[in-house]
């Protein structure tokens, strides 16, 4: 709780500030949209959190989102594949991506940065190849399937966008996995000290592969929901930079890039903060939209600097106690 208090306060502060400055911010339509975006980005952020906890990184998320996001309408509308087969193909692809990343990192001993950087280039290039660089979409069809992302569910009198349900399920599973199972404990331990984990009888390689698989699965699910939400996708820029939004959300939420630390709730709050910020930049008149990256960059930097200073202060106090 203490770990996420800072980021939670920051979220509340930005939220209140934006609602004061902008009249449309609290509009139900805007809030619903904000929730939807938060949920979509939350899912891919949770995925990358697992990888970051092991001390790794995944730069290929945006390209996986692109391949899945363009691949789904391409399979359905252009190749005439049935929905269950298309979904199975997406699941299979995501599993394979994560597995291959994990194998290359643990068995071939390549650096995660290099492996997933190549993934970033590879999956987007492949997508632009098989789609002929043409925009892919559902047109007016597949309304039922698109309900998965565009629909709403009434929960206790609130109309909750469907992606929020997905986020809640993913977050709950991830939280339980990380905190209540021995495998979650293993991930935290090996992220902090891989050698000690190995000496403790933990199958480190298998756990690291698992983390990359979880990440790729979340990216795949994210890609699926993103494209169902917006209806069409351009191979050239769909999912661009999403890995950086996801990594930023995870870091804001308390994951250390050194590994060994992170909470799921923190990551979700981090993702929400990112989306509220982006929303604020769009809504507030006197902030030019094109400086979005600068503002997001500055806020993330300020957040992690404040966090590091706080942590150092706590560590000094602890160290001097013993």
């Amino acid at each position: 709780m203490k770990k996420i208090l800072g980021i939670l306060l920051l979220l509340v502060f930005v939220f209140i500030a934006t609602s004061i400055v902008s009249e449309v911010f609290l509009d139900p339509y805007n809030l619903e949209n904000l929730l939807r975006r938060t949920a979509l980005f939350g899912i891919i952020s949770i995925g990358v959190a697992f990888v970051i906890i092991t001390g790794g990184i995944d730069l290929s998320i945006g390209s996986v989102v692109c391949l899945v996001g363009c691949g789904l309408p391409w399979m359905l509308t252009e190749q005439g594949v049935s929905v269950p087969v298309a979904l199975a193909a997406i699941l299979g692809f995501s599993l394979a991506v994560g597995f291959v990343h994990g194998i290359l990192i643990t068995k071939v001993k390549l650096q995660p940065f290099v492996v997933t950087l190549c993934g970033l280039l590879l999956y987007r290039g492949i997508t632009r190849g098989f789609t002929g660089d043409q925009s892919q979409g559902f047109g007016t069809e597949y309304k039922g399937l698109r309900e998965l992302a565009t629909g709403e569910i009434n929960v206790f009198g609130f109309d909750l966008p469907m992606p929020c349900i997905f986020l809640l399920v993913v977050a709950a599973l991830a939280g339980v996995f990380l905190n209540k199972t021995i495998y979650g404990r293993y991930l935290l331990a090996l992220g902090n000290n891989e050698e000690a984990a190995r000496f403790s009888g933990i199958n480190v390689d298998r756990m690291v592969i698992l983390a990359y698989v979880i990440c790729a699965l979340c990216s795949g699910l994210g890609g699926l929901l993103f494209v169902l939400d917006v209806n069409s996708a351009q191979p050239v820029d769909f999912g661009n930079f999403y890995e950086l939004y996801a990594i930023a959300a995870a870091v804001l939420g308390g994951c250390s890039l050194r590994g060994g630390a992170g909470t799921i709730i923190g990551v979700v709050i981090g993702a929400a903060l990112m989306q509220v910020l982006r929303n604020m930049i769009v809504l507030v008149d006197w902030i030019p939209t094109h400086i979005e990256y600068a503002i997001i960059g500055a806020v993330i930097l300020a957040g992690v600097v404040a966090d590091e200073l706080l942590k150092n202060a706590v560590a000094r106090r602890q160290a001097s106690k013993s």
Partner: peptide
């Protein structure tokens, strides 16, 4: 510190790891 312990985990978590 390098092989025996996960230095940023608690006493309890280290004792139970294996």
């Amino acid at each position: 510190k390098k092989q025996g312990l996960v230095i940023d985990m608690t006493v309890r978590e280290n004792l139970s790891l294996s």
